[in-house]
Amino acid sequence: MSVLEVQHVTGGYTKKPVIKDLSFTIGKGELVGLIGLNGAGKSTTIKHIIGTMLPKEGDIRLNGVTLKENTDKYRTAFSYIPETPVLYDELTLREHLALTAMAYGIDEATLAARSEQLLKEFRMEKRLNWFPSHFSKGMRQKVMIMCAFLVNPSLYIIDEPFVGLDPLGIQSLLDQMDTKKKEGASILMSTHILSTAEKHCDRIILLHEGRVRAQGTMADLRKAFAMPHATLDDLYIAMTKERDHEEHA
């Protein structure tokens, strides 16, 4: 069974929809890349999945339930790393971890064990009592990443994860994602770093102007665009050019 099912979802801020009739699924243990230009609807798609926006049409199911059917089960099923870190200025790093663990019903022993491992991985052990105002952009991003991995959900939703992270941070994140995948978790990742997406994603969803332009493995995409040796960058550029031609025609 799929972990995430997005079925014919249409939605947006105003009457004019940003995403149109969007459908895709993510299976257990799959890493799926959500790729598209600025304004293609990536962030809106993610907002619908995390439930801060509700679809005008269509359904989103996480582990078989919609947000309305079982809010608790839906919310426990995923953790989210936003593009811009959203931290509480009034909480220390330690308290961010504790708050997240409390909210997701993780016991204290598990919290201690998991945070020790994460703090080490992301080299933040010495900053436990720091407030976010003293963190750099990359460190703030690391706090978000640690909180997300602390929860150990079935789906990780990660928006532009590599921006602001140093090379070691990127490697740690990729390692964590790999470990969680092996344990059976699924990941939906939106990014502009196409080479990384190509290398790590099992499947790619190409989003253009609110619709799924193409989706599948790299082999599927190459076939769809009839470019047998293309990289993801080539495909991406081909997709935008194709649209430009249509617009100018």
Binding site: T71, Y74, R75, Y80, V86, Y88, L99, A103, Y104
Partner: peptide, 12 residues
């Protein structure tokens, strides 16, 4: 503003 606790699996 958006806060992370809006996503927590807690009662409304």
């Amino acid at each position: 503003e958006f806060r992370m606790d809006m996503l927590y699996p807690l009662p409304e």
